[in-house]
């Protein structure tokens, strides 16, 4: 029996089970042998090249000194070198000049997309579509002016407009109601109260507002404080905007992003981005 199982007289381990069962000392197949040696050689070479073995206080750093952070930094450097072509020009240029250059303004828009998302979109909505109480940036109605320089200024210094409350001693509720109806109808300049009560001082005789003050245009269909209903307008007239004497006053403040919060270059990029949202004024 045992001879039949070992016709080529291969050497055995010498262990015998159940009287006849021996273990032959056959070599593994050649392909397996090659694979086995290739594998451990690979492991040795790999662990020599890359950070690998744990040591008592640290770990073996690898002969090439490769780390993931180094590779990341190198990749970032590569990206920055691609951007450098534009980035180096931006600080020395005015926003108007950046806007006039097709390629640079395109770069500014693309790189400001993330900045806008991080700093502006929370109030103004993605794409500058606006939110209740926060102006739409994609239209052509600008309280302080929609030129590229004014937009830059607004971002840098912020804005805080002021409209005194007219409720109480100044106007009765009936008068407020009259004015509000006229404003919503777009006919406020025909309303005698508009002249009498001094609204005209800020909102001008034509009713289109003054950009130097940030007073709103009352003749168009765009509303600073949404929704543009009679009640909403009446509320604004009654309590004013940012009037410290009225606790129920409208709160309207654009924080400043200059002075360390954002770099000048970032502000320039954002100004171009905002301008391009709706094409400025």
């Amino acid at each position: 029996m045992s001879e039949k199982n070992n016709p080529y007289d291969v050497q055995t381990t010498g262990h015998v089970w159940d009287e006849t069962l021996g273990e032959l000392l056959n070599q593994p197949p050649k392909w397996w042998w090659i694979g086995f040696h290739a594998s451990w050689i690979f492991v040795v070479v790999y662990t020599l090249i890359y950070p690998s073995w744990p040591l008592l206080n640290s770990h073996f750093k690898g002969l090439t000194g490769w780390t993931a952070i180094k590779e990341y930094k190198q990749d970032m450097k590569e990206i920055e070198s691609v951007r450098a072509k534009y980035e180096s020009k931006l600080p020395g240029m005015s926003v108007a000049a950046i806007l006039a250059d097709d390629e640079l303004s395109e770069y500014a828009v693309r790189s400001a997309k993330v900045l806008f998302g991080d700093n502006c979109a929370a109030c103004h909505g993605a794409g500058g579509s606006g939110n209740p109480g926060f102006p739409v940036l994609a239209d052509d109605d600008w309280l302080y002016g929609g030129s590229i320089e004014t937009i830059e200024q607004t971002i840098t210094n912020g804005r805080r407009g002021m409209m005194p409350k007219m409720g109480g001693s100044q106007l009765t509720d009936v008068e407020i109601d009259k004015l509000a109806s006229a404003i919503v109808a777009g006919k406020v300049i025909e309303e005698p109260l508009y002249m009498e009560k001094g609204c005209v001082g800020c909102h001008t005789p034509t009713g289109t507002g003054m950009q130097a003050l940030g007073s709103a245009n009352l003749m168009d269909g765009i509303w600073r404080f949404a929704p543009g209903s009679k009640e909403s307008v009446a509320y604004t007239i009654k309590h004013g905007v940012n009037d410290p004497s009225d606790p129920k006053t409208r709160d309207a403040e654009m924080p400043k992003f200059g002075g360390g919060k954002l770099s000048d270059t970032d502000i320039k990029k954002l100004a171009v981005y905002v301008y391009k949202l709706g094409g400025g004024q």
Partner: peptide, 18 residues
């Protein structure tokens, strides 16, 4: 076509698309 916002009301009562 710009999707956010899809359209914008302008001060001269026109609708703008980007």
């Amino acid at each position: 076509h710009e999707r956010q916002p899809l359209f914008v009301l302008q001060s001269d009562n026109t609708i703008q698309n980007k």
